[in-house]
């Protein structure tokens, strides 16, 4: 199996999963299964990485249900500074950490989030996607998902680190990526090789986390139905306070 043909097959799969009319979990599973089928050795490496992160308790420190989400002010894909406070004016906010436009699972998730955004708005909520990538690539992710929400640059993973969601890739992986021609440094405007653990928080108007999904296994993302249920909880919590 040549590398080029494998990469091509995976890209086709990404597009197929992105455009698939199925629940997010199923789309991600099809993607992961295809990777496992086409590139079992890669899948094993990912499994080992996830085991290691789980064992280290990666992401465990991130705000939990009932805890306060730290405020943020980050530039969107057009360069406008967007604050969590401003997003809260409408009601609850769904804060989604994605790794970036290059990641198939993030593209599929961004597409699913964009698809559910009208329902989020119907519930008086807003959606914001955060990545460590600079505006050019966030604009690409936004176009790819046909999203209507701001895609914010968490430059140098500063906010992700504050939430305990930053992970660093080692030299070996860096050179493997560079060898493969992926200049993540170019996407991040730094050469740190730090990525966020993908995560989704549903934050009620008072800044309290009402829904949370953090998994070092980046092939797994929050179930969209769970997300909408958490939004309903967030709205009830806000109504009670009134």
């Amino acid at each position: 199996m040549t590398g080029a043909s494998l990469a091509t097959q995976l890209m086709d799969c990404t597009r197929r999963c992105r455009d698939m009319d199925a629940p997010l979990e199923q789309r991600l599973t099809v993607m992961a299964d295809d990777v496992r089928r086409l590139a079992p050795q890669f899948a094993q490496v990912v499994d080992r990485m996830v085991d290691r992160l789980r064992a280290a308790g990666a992401g465990a420190e991130a705000p939990g249900i009932g805890e306060v989400m730290p405020p943020f002010v980050l530039p969107d894909e057009t360069g406008r500074l967007v604050s969590l406070e401003e997003l809260h004016k409408a009601g609850a906010v769904v804060v989604a950490f994605l790794r970036g436009h290059w990641c198939p699972y993030c593209r599929i998730t961004a597409d699913a989030l964009a698809g559910v955004e009208p329902e989020i708005r119907l519930r008086g909520g807003r959606l914001a996607i955060l990545t460590p990538e600079v505006q050019e690539f966030n604009a690409a992710l936004k176009a790819d998902a046909a999203a209507d929400c701001p895609i914010l640059t968490d430059l140098d993973n500063g906010y992700a680190l504050a939430l305990g969601l930053a992970i660093q890739l080692d030299d070996e992986k860096r050179s493997a990526m560079l060898h493969a021609g992926w200049d993540i440094a170019g996407f991040h405007a730094n050469d740190h090789w730090i990525l966020p653990i993908p995560a989704i928080f549903v934050v009620d108007r008072s800044g309290t986390v009402r829904g949370r999904f953090v998994d070092p296994d980046y092939r797994k993302r929050m179930d969209i139905e769970d997300l909408l249920r958490a939004l309903d909880t967030a709205r009830r919590a806000t109504d009670r306070r009134r």
Partner: peptide, 19 residues
């Protein structure tokens, strides 16, 4: 923004560190 490269970034996952 797809490009034809031999190995995708997310597939060559090696070691990562949580901080």
């Amino acid at each position: 923004f797809d490009s034809v490269k031999s190995t995708p970034l997310w597939a060559c996952a090696g070691m990562v560190f949580s901080m």
